[in-house]
């Protein structure tokens, strides 16, 4: 068992080092094209019609985002995010876990899913 421990631990650190090496030497990804904010108005009623795992829109800080394609990639389990589909989710987004906001990277990623702005009812 000691041999299994030593071998597995050594392989683990080798793979972690490999990931670090790839990040160090890999060419920088091209800048993401600026996303022009969509200006289409989305009413709360229309927003509420997209409240499923397959079709999930959220309103965050005035913008409306179709995050359906991203949900499977989200780090937490779907159950954490799904209740916010079809709803105003600014507060949930701003207080991700224990009151912490999402990272700037998450903000940038979010913009790629923008489909419009929240309109008055």
């Amino acid at each position: 068992m000691a041999t299994v421990y030593r071998l597995s631990t050594a392989i683990f650190w080798l793979l972690v080092a490999l990931a670090g090496g790839v990040a160090l030497f890999a060419p920088a990804p091209p800048e993401a094209p600026a996303v022009s904010p969509a200006t289409r108005g989305v009413t709360p009623a229309e927003l509420a019609a997209h409240a499923t795992e397959e079709d999930c829109w959220m309103a965050i800080r005035g913008g409306v985002y179709d995050v359906s394609a991203y949900l499977p990639e989200h780090p937490t389990r779907p159950q954490v995010v799904l209740p916010w589909c079809g709803r105003e989710a600014t507060e949930a987004y701003a207080t991700k876990l224990r009151g912490r906001p999402h990272s700037p990277e998450a903000d940038r990623l979010l913009e790629t899913w923008r489909i419009g702005s929240l309109a008055a009812p």
Binding site: Y5, F12, L15, V16, A19, G20, V22, A23, L24, P29
Partner: peptide, 28 residues
């Protein structure tokens, strides 16, 4: 222990599919 060593490695392997540096961004 063996399964938990695999946990970050598998998640990192998935992140590599998005970008080559994704694994390191996930691990560190």
């Amino acid at each position: 222990y063996l399964l938990l060593l695999l946990h970050p490695l598998l998640l990192a392997a998935e992140a590599v599919r998005v970008t080559p540096a994704g694994a390191w961004q996930l691990l560190a």
